[in-house]
Nucleic acid binder design. Structure first.
Lengths: 277, 277
DNA sequence: CTGAAGCATGTAGCAAAACTACAAGAAAAT
DNA sequence: ATTTTCTTGTAGTTTTGCTACATGCTTCAG
């Protein structure tokens, strides 16, 4: 959470960044204060504080205090520190692993406020699922397709804008489009989301909750909106995306019940050769 | 916190113990609800809920929600428990995330005994790097190729046995073959590793350290050897593989020094449009 | 240089939420 | 049976978070 605030710092207006800096300096106080107290301490008005919360993708001030206490209580053993050129190889390795772990830990708490059941419900009834993403997110989509087809649902994965737009043009009611994007700022993806919805398909978006894409989707799922600033930091958000898609797959399997369980069992057996016997 | 409530249970009046039991049964709901909602759910009056809070030594209802989110986010050390069909969607989601985190935590300690520097050294001097894997590991290879090319090293990714064997047949000194396999038991991969080495190429294998493939490689890197037994457990080892490849990429970048740093910087700028200006 | 448009910020008011005071009823003690 | 005490709910008060609107600043076209 604090990490998230720090990353967003430069994108905020003067008054709001005042709030951000005060919270970063007194996180413990902020978590236990009232809206009025925080506004007074920052010497800004109350609505400014609320607007600050909204810019972070939170529901309001109440949400902020909850998230703050949450992140303050988390173990700090895997806090992320950037790799720099003077690190030894072993230090760098530990840092990269730590940041990966930290990413998943934050994603875990992000998911607490998401209605996974709603997404699972839609996915379970899908006529077909199309996973789509550009660049690195394309590989995430491939992975998802490779995982969901085992539930017996027709699946495909698209990773270039022309294909994605073509699909949007022929999407039908019952189709589910799952879009993955780190920033959520590619206009092509938002356009595909809008057109698909217009044609009656459902759109799930794994992306920054404040992005255009999230706004264009039926079911936005906040995902890995963290930093990615440092030169040597890998794109950890894809790990979040993969893990969230795992969550969705498991949730969908539970929703589908025995039928899905049997298919999963048979796919496992296929690999160990038990089916041929 | 939940423990504390349980201890105090018998010392409470009837109406208050109603509240206590409801909170113990629905801690997550309680943390996100309002006083009125909790009172309604327990079928008691609002002051009763407040009195309950005071009996616990808390300041009020506000305090209760804070403390609850706090203790709920204290990850139960992310120990892995299998998802089963009776889990609620939210429970299943937490379990999936926990198992993903646990996988990375163990991978982190596995890496402590691996000479990353040796692998980075080989990679940094490579004429070309070929990433190869079958099935799910194929996507991991794609991701790696998509990441390493930014260092300026010629890279490709192969994900089917025929292609992999063809590459092994023409591998040369200076080429590096990075094989990824969960079990390390596909004979095709071990054969490709042996032939590549025989022809003077280096072979790095991300796999089970006791496997045939690990034995056939120059530099084996233990990776995600955990079992993936349960029906609903995702293949977490691929998260380990991705993270380890991140580590290798960062290590290689550090080994290459300024040249790689500049290339990384330019690839970042390309995305934000700064190069065209 | 002027005026319009858009953005940032604050003021005032509102609805809800949390909390308090008090009273009614039940159980226990005299 | 009467008083006392303890438990619980009702009604009211204060606080809190939030929204609608207005003001002022910046930016940019003409």
């Amino acid at each position: 959470m604090l990490q998230l605030i720090e990353n967003r710092l430069k994108g905020l207006s003067p008054a709001e960044s005042l709030v951000a800096r005060w919270i970063l300096a007194h996180p413990r106080d902020a978590a236990n204060s009232t809206l009025a107290a925080v506004a007074a301490a920052c010497e800004v008005s109350e609505p400014t504080v609320i607007r600050f919360c909204r810019h972070l993708g939170l529901g309001g001030f109440r949400d902020l205090t909850l998230r703050l206490t949450e992140s303050l209580s988390q173990p700090s053993s895997f806090v992320h520190r950037d790799v720099n050129r003077d690190d030894t190889i072993q230090d760098a390795a530990a840092k990269v692993m730590d940041s990966a772990i930290q990413t998943l830990v934050s994603q875990r708490s992000l998911l607490r406020n998401v209605d996974i059941g709603k997404a699972a419900n839609v996915l379970a009834r899908a006529r077909q699922i199309v996973f789509a993403g550009i660049g690195g997110s394309g590989h995430v989509s491939d992975d998802a397709q490779h995982k969901f087809f085992r539930l017996g649902i027709p699946c495909s994965a698209l990773s270039d804008p022309p294909s994605i737009q073509q699909f949007a043009a022929i999407a039908e009611r019952g189709d589910v489009l799952v879009l993955t994007s780190n920033s959520g700022q590619w206009p092509e993806l938002s356009a595909a989301a809008s057109m698909s919805r217009q044609r009656g398909a459902s759109v799930i978006a794994l992306t920054d909750p404040t992005s255009d894409l999230a706004a264009a989707a039926d079911i936005p799922i906040p995902c890995g909106s963290e930093d990615e600033t440092s030169l040597y930091t890998p794109r950890n958000s894809r790990l979040s995306q993969l893990a969230v898609l795992d969550v969705l797959q498991v949730a969908t399997a539970l929703e589908l019940g025995d039928a899905a369980a049997n298919r999963l069992r048979r796919t496992k057996m296929a690999l160990s050769g038990d089916l041929t016997a």
